[in-house]
Design a binder for these strands. Structure first.
Lengths: 248, 248
DNA sequence: AATGGGAGTTGCAAAATATGCAACAACTGA
DNA sequence: TCAGTTGTTGCATATTTTGCAACTCCCATT
């Protein structure tokens, strides 16, 4: 481990909670302010950090560049785009693409609803593991040891009346996902939206990503949502084929 | 300057051009592979970097988190959202929000067109300075010394038949932006799209960000686009008011 | 206008870490 | 099974990082 680097990256993470002064940042990493300044100067030269007025530092624009590049590096995103865009155009609802990365589920693409609505999800954000359709799809495909490892640190905060709040109930839900070949979010994450999700597979049948379609309850009831399941599964299969999957 | 940190951040930047092996990364920063490994281990522990298979490293998910947070830190984005969302809903065309940061113009929000279309712009990406409406709006408001500084390093690659390709012509264009109170991209960036942009101002009249509306030429000709100028200017003013601007 | 306090900045000697080396481990293809 | 490639490790040495004390700059108060 590189101590100097560790300190610098801690500074960057600390700036995630808002702009801070040199003294504040020194306090966080426990070194002299002249040392902190030297680290900030280097971070600034790489644009990870920038001055915000005279006294504050904040996160810099290199993060945008790198985050965009990190997204575009994910081949499944490019391969899935035509199918997902088409689903969004035909049905007019929000479509997400998410992938599993190191114990987290990240939204890597999103096509906005034709109807004006605000959702939690944004490209680059993590999806909560316990209550989103995409996360259920992705965790359902993990090998048992990896799934146990994730569950060991997973939390189950109740976000709506329907949220799954125990590991046991969650494992049962993942069994249903495996049996059905798709997942649902029955207003478990945000109480005005429900959602269906399906896996996008690769050449060897492994799950590369998950696609989901989210609809406000006022526009479509749950049965109406499920009526779109064939569309979603067809979209997932079309995207899978683009990723090298050979259907049976 | 912190040499160790500088090397580590160079590694991160290098991974922007695709996954790389330990040896490749050592070659880039000119240190022994055991040193490179130690730097990568620290980057990995902060999730700036992750393993991609057994032999490659690639950009990690912390970049998504930080980029999202960096975006949401920008108050103008939150303040402008209602006005921009409304413009997008009423007219159905792509609406962008961009801000000026350290010599660059960054898209910080985007509302997709009702019509299926693919554009260069993405949230977090830089807008080319010489040929986008948002960049013209933002550069037109810079004090002369800062503008000269930007122009000193600015490039003018021809992207379409209409692209401005010289500093002199660009300065004339900025004069027009100042006189008109709005900017146009007359298919200068992407030859199938034109675009109008306007400033969003703060409490002291300073330009905080730029809003733009982009339309494919096949949907609306240039006169048709200009007919929407009152809508765009009204949106920019509504957003400005949310940012503390007091109209005259 | 002067002053004091807060925050940023600097040069350098001392303290501490980063570094490279050489050997080893693991994996893969022939 | 073996060779080559790539990742990994412990430790002595080389080099950088660090803290100090003083300085500069800016802003608010008197």
């Amino acid at each position: 481990m590189s101590q100097s680097l560790d300190r610098a990256l801690t500074l960057v993470s600390q700036l995630a909670s808002g702009p801070k002064t040199l003294d504040e940042l020194s306090g966080v990493i426990g070194v002299h302010k002249s040392t902190t300044l030297r680290l900030l100067r280097t971070l600034e030269s790489h644009r990870f950090v920038q001055r915000d007025g005279v006294h504050h530092y904040r996160l810099g624009t290199a993060l945008f560049d790198l985050a965009n590049i990190a997204l575009e590096e994910r081949d499944v995103r490019r391969a899935a785009e035509p199918a997902l865009r088409d689903l969004n155009a035909r049905l007019g609802h929000t479509v997400h693409l998410a992938s599993y990365e190191d114990g987290e589920v990240i939204y890597i693409d999103k096509y906005e609803s034709r109807h004006q609505m605000r959702m939690y999800s944004r490209i680059g954000r993590r999806a909560p593991l316990h209550c989103t359709a995409v996360a259920k799809v992705l965790l359902a495909d993990l090998p048992a040891p990896a799934l146990q490892k994730v569950l060991a640190t997973m939390e189950f905060p109740r976000l709506t009346a329907n949220t799954i709040t125990s590991p046991a109930a969650y494992l049962e839900e993942l069994d249903r996902v495996r049996a059905n070949g798709y997942a649902v979010d029955n207003a478990e994450h945000e109480d005005f939206i429900h959602c269906i999700g399906a896996p996008i597979k690769g050449a060897r049948g492994e799950v590369l990503a998950a696609v989901s379609m989210s609809v406000p309850k006022v526009l479509l009831d749950f049965d109406g949502l499920l009526a779109h399941l064939p569309d979603l599964l067809a979209t997932a299969e079309a995207a899978s084929v683009e990723c090298g999957y050979v259907p049976r």
